[in-house]
Simulated scan of single mutants.
Amino acid sequence: MANPYRGEVCLTVDGVDCAMRLSLGALAQLEVRLGAEGLLPLIERFETGQFKADDLIALLWAGLSAAGWAGSEADLSKAEIAGGPMVAARCAAQLLRLTFTLPESGDD
């Protein structure tokens, strides 16, 4: 079960509920992987909907791997995400939000 107070979000990958969270190391790797000029441009890319599918996979993989998921980005790109791309994007947005804020009461 994901703990939103730790910045965790649950994503169901190939039928398995997996926690995601973004550590500082995961964020640093994500910046490099996506060619972002810092965290703010990276967050803005997702907030404004200017992200690509590859960006989404990279963000989800960073969150999964920081929480202990053993698969690769290639594994994730072939995996079935419960709810499809819309749920994946929603989970990615929630992951970014919880990484930098506390969850709202009654949320999650």
Rank of each mutant, 00 (worst) to 15 (best):
E47A: 13
T101M: 04
R90G: 13
N3D: 14
E31D: 07
L27W: 04
L98W: 00
E73F: 08
L64D: 02
A53S: 14
F46C: 08
C91V: 07
D14L: 14
P103L: 07
A62I: 06
D17K: 15
A88L: 03
C18W: 04
A74K: 15
V9Q: 04
E80V: 10
G68S: 08
N3A: 09
A66Q: 00
G106E: 13
L56C: 01
L34E: 12
V32G: 11
K78Q: 15
A26G: 11
V9W: 01
L102M: 09
C91L: 10
A82N: 12
T12P: 13
V32Y: 10
R90Q: 09
E37A: 12
K78P: 11
L102D: 12
T12W: 10
G49Q: 07
L34F: 13
F100D: 00
Y5E: 08
W69M: 03
T101L: 03
Q29M: 06
A74Q: 14
L102P: 05
G106S: 11
L60A: 03
A74P: 13
A89Y: 03
A53F: 15
E104D: 07
A66N: 05
T48L: 12
L64K: 02
M86L: 14
P103D: 09
W61N: 09
L42D: 01
A92I: 04
Y5H: 08
L39A: 11
L76Y: 02
A36F: 14
L42K: 04
W69E: 04
G38D: 11
F46R: 04
L27Y: 01
R6S: 08
L39E: 10
V13M: 06
C18Q: 12
Q29C: 10
D55W: 03
V87K: 08
L11Y: 05
L27V: 11
F51D: 05
Q94H: 09
W61T: 05
L34P: 08
Q94C: 11
A92E: 01
L64Q: 06
L64I: 03
G71R: 07
Y5K: 04
F100R: 02
K52T: 15
D14M: 13
V9R: 02
R6E: 07
D75M: 10
S23W: 00
E31W: 03
A93H: 09
S72W: 06
V13H: 05
G71A: 10
L95T: 00
L40Q: 15
E80P: 04
L56S: 01
G68C: 05
E37S: 15
G49N: 09
R33L: 12
Q29P: 01
A70N: 09
W69T: 02
A19Y: 05
Q94F: 04
V13P: 01
S77T: 12
A2N: 11
G106L: 04
G84H: 09
S65R: 12
L64T: 05
A88I: 02
L30D: 07
L22I: 05
